[in-house]
Design a protein around this nucleic acid. Sequence first.
RNA 1: GCGCCCGUAGCUCAGCGGAUCAGAGUAUUGGCCUCCGAAGCCAAGGGUCGUGGGUUCGAAUCCCGCCGGGCGCGCCA
Length: 548
Amino acid sequence: MASDPKSEIERILTEGVKKLSSEPIEFHVELEKPRRAEHGDYSSSAALQLAKILAMPPRKIAENLQKLTAESIANSGLSEPLELAGAGFLNIRLKKSIKQKTVARILEQGGKYGHATVPGAEKVMVEFVSANPTGPLHVGHGRQAALGDALAALLEAQGHAVTREFYYNDAGAQIQNLALSVQARASGMTPEDSGWPADGYRGEYIEEIARSFAAAGGKAGDLEAARQFAVAALRKEQDADLQAFGVAFDVYYLESSLYTDGRVESAVKALVASGKTYERDGALWLRTTEYGDDKDRVVRKSDGSYTYFVPDVAYHLTKWERGFRKVVNVQGTDHHSTVTRVRAGLQALGLGIPPGYPDYVLHNLVKVVRGGEEVKISKRAGSYVTLRDLIDWVGRDAVRFFLVSRRADADFVFDVDLARSQSDENPVYYVQYAHARVCSVFSQWGGDTGGLAAAPLDSLAGPRESALLQRLAEFPELVATAAHELAPHSIAFYLRELAGEFHSYYNAERILVDDEAARRARLALCAAVRQVLANGLALLGVSAPERM
RNA sequence: GCGCCCGUAGCUCAGCGGAUCAGAGUAUUGGCCUCCGAAGCCAAGGGUCGUGGGUUCGAAUCCCGCCGGGCGCGCCA
């Protein structure tokens, strides 16, 4: 089929609209999904939208459109005759055979169902987590890991060549603080002592690092050695956490390399050459206000060192130079001010980098509640819930599903007690259970699933079966929308709905009925449900167990 | 003070450039296993969609004000 039923009907209606008036009308019909099943599979509010343009009552327009398209609709074989409803809606009811074909399509495409190759598929980078190697990964990083990995998977599902990148800020003042903290611990100090570094990290993990540093023969006086040891130890720790979380990166980019490669220097030179800089108070400034920033930014401090702004620009420049024309940065909203700055810096280079480059997905910080009280996430205070804690408590799948189940910019309260004590209530089990249930039916049946793609499907006509068919048919479009809007949470909600409809069906109808044709049709439907559940869960990085 | 984000059922959250949009889960209450897995299903109660205006045939959704919460506002990163 050249195009799916929905697009084809949209095309027919759009053609019909052109015939409504002798005047040319620029209007593209887009079908909507009605909330109520009795309103059909799709509906169009085109008549209401056109009422003003045509100066006609919407119901009259709908009636005309219905007549004008009747023949094309009939010839297409896709839909029953359009129904006029309400204030001027046209409801579309797909022919049963068309809906039933969804099952065969899913079984043929298997793991590829829901995947596509959009026009203009390209090299895309998703940068996420990018935690400083100054402490273990916490819940916020977990949200970012779940979100970023799902985004990457969604973009891959649209045919893009995706690179997952982790940027290590291993060269700034925070690292210096880390080194000083380890050094202080190594020489026997505690955060309570008067000589403790002003911005030192107070967590107990510093003590552990200091101990192994000493055990490895490190001397407290050697700051550089302490720095290297601490960074290596924490990177190793973070890598282990990410592995436990099932998130893998293609590239780890080190901030320090920007200095050793001379990219920081050349970025400064390029900015100066652009003519957008000026000297004031002994410092070098960039006119970022010309690119929407609320104040100009310092590039080189009066003491001769660079602000973090420079490596940031240099780093994002490498993304452009490495050929990524689409880049998505996943960050916490506490970094939202860097968005304008980075973009301004890139534009100031005068290389033709578009104003909106790169894309950002900013997520709200996770509020962790334990014992009815908020647990402050503070590395320096050393008291916070680590990603590893969460995984240990409720399991990787539950954490990933939960963390990606909310809109990125929504507030997020993670109740630790709830997650620990009632892990059975976690929505991921509901979805996984549906998958396991299908598997169970198949092992009960014991037949060969291979031939089900060719099973006759015309018996799938009940209301629950129709609902499932409709839901299954939506999946590819849903994935495309989620990828386009960078909104993986919609996948999680979809899976819950699909699982719910399957559970209802399963409770209401028997799958393994005596009648052979009906049994094969139902099994085919179940196989399709299982496939889509598995495909959706895969996008979220969650396993689809055959048994629970 | 300025900027960005968020206020939807007791709780956690979907729905967000309109219409067929008052929703899900959870919690509470009452039903369903001699029958493919009860981590399930069915049903009930529960909200002036923070608030006041505006635009429109129509606003949870768009615009403005206000209130409340979060995060930013450094020659820190």
